[in-house]
Design a protein around this nucleic acid. Sequence first.
DNA 1: TTGGTTGCAAAACGTTTGCATGTGC
DNA 2: GCACATGCAAACGTTTTGCAACCAA
Lengths: 132, 132
Amino acid sequence: MEQQFNLRFSKNRQYIIEILESEKIPLCVDFIFEKLRLKNKSVSLSTVYRILEKLVINNTVVKTIFGDDLKAKFELNRQGHKHYLICTECNDMVPIHNCPIGEIEKSLQENTGFYIKGHKLEVYGHCAKCHG
Amino acid sequence: MEQQFNLRFSKNRQYIIEILESEKIPLCVDFIFEKLRLKNKSVSLSTVYRILEKLVINNTVVKTIFGDDLKAKFELNRQGHKHYLICTECNDMVPIHNCPIGEIEKSLQENTGFYIKGHKLEVYGHCAKCHG
DNA sequence: TTGGTTGCAAAACGTTTGCATGTGC
DNA sequence: GCACATGCAAACGTTTTGCAACCAA
């Protein structure tokens, strides 16, 4: 499950992991690219994509598409923090800590014959600020 | 909530709705485009996009992006059928009829101050066929 | 030296848009 | 006739890829 190919040390990969660590929510490639530039650690866009791709295969990073956006977001594969409450006005994302799906998976598995490996849950609404 | 703009009769729109009706799962634009072609009802790709866009605004059709795919899928806005069990091997999609999120939304609303409007749930696994 | 890593430019991909033409009402 | 519907080609934004140079081990 770890390291499906050989990785060499790379400063750029370290920088990107640091950015993903410092932010608590999923980030899009643009944001990471810009953040690197602002830190004077510019990395080419294709390299950002390539690094993220490997980290995803590696299981270090999780790639998700939220809503019907057409761009991917990336976050560290931490424990918990897998679901988000998303404000459709300001796009603020708040982690949902309790995951209520585990029990449901069990009954689904029995009813459908599927061997269930995971799930994705997003909840949408207006945050307190935007809900005037 | 209905008909946010004037729609005129259009054969192409009818054909697309028929295809969405006959299939029980979300379809991508390619599939719809190809299906039309095979029925000798060819419609240009941009027209397919434009028709679907209007049907989405109209609330006749729901647009979703599943997993970390980079293309949208469309399905009729039927009652229920909002969640899917997806086989990560063969991409088979099975509707989940019970929606267990309603109750959770209530407590989330209280805890977060969010005014909750909806949610998205997908469950991933291997279907019986693919789970050898 | 070997093979992963990078930058650049170009291509690929899904989607959107401008414009001229066609068509329902 | 007006406004929506359509086809075509071009543009767009995101992501991927080919290639040559670079660098960790």
